[in-house]
Amino acid sequence: MTDGNDQVLSVRSLSTEFDGEDGALRVVDDVAFSVGRGEILGIVGESGSGKSVTGYSIMGLVDPPGRVASGDVVLEGRRLDLTDDAAMRKVRGNAISMIFQDPMTSLHPLLTIGDQMIDAILAHRKMPKREARSLAVEALRKVGIPSPEVRVRSYPHQLSGGMRQRVAIAIASLNQPALIIADEPTTGLDVTIQAQILHEIQMLVADRGMAVIWITHDMAVVGQLADRVAVMYAGRIVEEGPTQAILDSPAHPYTIGLLGSLLGRNRGKAELPQIPGSIDNAHRLTGCRFAPRCAHARAECEARPPMVEVSPGHHSACILATEQADG
């Protein structure tokens, strides 16, 4: 975990449930992590892992039938009440910003870029529109949009996909947030564009010491970008630690499976190794949720494995790790 003074965000016991026909489903189950200044935390998982919902929960954007059941969230020393919408609105777009997948659908099609940026500024600070507009132009310039004074009057459909995502990043950084949550921002984009976006984020982090949570299913991106990684499965964090440690010596069968299926590691093989089984019904298990698909599953896995330190700063929630730590 990061050093207390430099901590931007600390999350403990975060749980989010969705009410359904068969009772409430714990989509995020007792999740804990923290992010420090200038640090990029990658949250990795497949669909259904709860990684996006974790992001929404921290932002207070969980809509019925979902709700945050519990959570101890501290942002820059202040406790956040995730269920108090009025209070969270002051935080959203201000101290914490979020960017989403597919910028075409994030930006309102009928409003100019400038208007949408000015909205973001004026929602949190009082200033004349003119001033807000020049701030917007500056922000566009910072993310590398050419001729920002002209672009400010454009509509989203007049920009390319990469530029739109830059605009989204610009909007997110307008109010100097302490933390940016990025939910799959490069999924579906060209590799070249993806590289540009990654670069922009890295610049923001380097320039302003912003903290970033990067949510993705793409282990490769995380490997390039993140300082620390948290691996999620079926609503729980199963492993977390420094990126290099996780890549070199993964300590959870799921992580091992994920890494094993990466293309880069499988050159020359005829078949890509896959993790057998599927995530269905894992959310209902109270014990280890990965057990049904795990080659090493044992009777002890019916109880929820605790997070155990495998090496400095590197934790894993697996019975194997517990044994390794003890023995």
């Binding site: 979020m98 659908t105 409003l111 973001a120 929602a123």
Partner: peptide, 22 residues
């Protein structure tokens, strides 16, 4: 339910503004 509404909320806009303009 469109995502630009979600983005607007993520910006911290008030419900009033979201409803009336967006």
């Amino acid at each position: 339910s469109a995502s630009f509404i979600r983005f607007a909320r993520a910006k911290g806009l008030s419900t009033g503004r979201i409803l009336s303009v967006y």
